[in-house]
Every structure is written in structure tokens, then in C-alpha cells.
């Protein structure tokens, strides 16, 4: 039995502790918003937050996690899609097929949490998720929009 804290709830999961977090989320917990893309931490489709840090869950065995660590998935980023990153994504109609987008959004939210006003170079360096449909320019624009909206909220 492995104890995890996911989206604020304590979850006890009966699973081989070497199972990657991605598959515990998808198969034991039925949270399929986090995607399998490559299985080797290259594409970023499996990105979640662990203690606020964007983390690729496909190579992270749950044995490496403690019950105290806060895991946040796309399902828990906001209760209703109202996170500034999700709002910016909606405003700019970013997704195409959408398969990589939960990972993109989690990576972007992670970036903004640590760097509220990222430069273009920051975005290029930090957002290394793969999108084959080619949404990169809109992802970049949406990150900047989310940063600007967050600024406005804080200032106003």
C-alpha cells in the first residue's frame, strides 16, 4: 500500500511501489488527464506538479514519493478550469488535438509559479514539451497572457 496526496486528498493505493506515478494516476485512480506519450520523460505529456514543481510522472516510481508531498494533476489545477493558465489557453484557443495540452498547461503553470514574468528565453528553456500539431506559438502567447493577467489581478 502506498499513501499519496493528490489534489489535496489522501489516497491509499494498492500497487507495486515501483509503478510510475503516471500509471497509478491513470489506472489505479482513474485520472486520465495526465497522458502517456513516450515513457522516458522526453515529451512532457505526463507533467504534474510535485510540491509545486513541474515533474514528469512517467519515470517517477511512487516509491520515491512521500505522503507529505503534494501532487497536483490537471484535474486538480483548478476546480473549474479557472486557473489563469487555463483561462489564457481558453482565450487564445490554444489546443489542436489537445493530447499534449494537459502536460503543457501543467508545465506552464509550474513555470509561472516560480517565475511570474518569464522572458521568451525563459519560456523556450523551460517549456520543453512536445506538441506535434504545432501549438508552440500560441502556447508562448498564452503563457505571456496568463502572466499579464496574474499581474493585473495582483495589482488590481
Amino acid at each position: 500500500m502506498v499513501r499519496l496526496t493528490i489534489n489535496g486528498a489522501t489516497r491509499d493505493v494498492d500497487v507495486d511501489p515501483e509503478t510510475p506515478l503516471l500509471w497509478v494516476l491513470r489506472e489505479q485512480l482513474g485520472m486520465t488527464g495526465t497522458k502517456y506519450g513516450c515513457g522516458v520523460a522526453l515529451c512532457g505529456a505526463c507533467t504534474v506538479h510535485v510540491d509545486g514543481v513541474a515533474t514528469r510522472s512517467c519515470v517517477l516510481p511512487v516509491s520515491a514519493l512521500t505522503p507529505e508531498q503534494a501532487i497536483v494533476t490537471i484535474e486538480g489545477l483548478s476546480p473549474d478550469g479557472s486557473h489563469p493558465v487555463q483561462q489564457a489557453w481558453l482565450e487564445l484557443d490554444v489546443p489542436q488535438c489537445g493530447y499534449c495540452q494537459p502536460g503543457m498547461i501543467m508545465a506552464a503553470a509550474g513555470l509561472l509559479a516560480g517565475n511570474p514574468n518569464p522572458t521568451d528565453d525563459d519560456i523556450s528553456a523551460e517549456i520543453t514539451n512536445i506538441c506535434r500539431c504545432g501549438t508552440y506559438n500560441r502556447v508562448r502567447a498564452a503563457i505571456k497572457l496568463a502572466a499579464a493577467d496574474s499581474d493585473a489581478t495582483q495589482n488590481g
Binding site: 486520465t32 490537471i74 478550469g81 490554444v94 489546443p95 493530447y99
Partner: peptide, 27 residues
Amino acid sequence: LPRLDTRDKLTGKQVYGADLVMPSMVN
């Protein structure tokens, strides 16, 4: 016009083939 299928792609609700779950399903 904005796409009709954006919202569920922002919250993880959009179901792809890889996400499908059925009662008594095996993998």
C-alpha cells in the same frame, strides 16, 4: 470562431482512445 472542442482539453476531461475505461476491461 473559437473551436467547439477546446474547454475539455484544458481540464483533462477530453477522452482519447488511450483513456478509455470500461467495466471489466483488461489491458
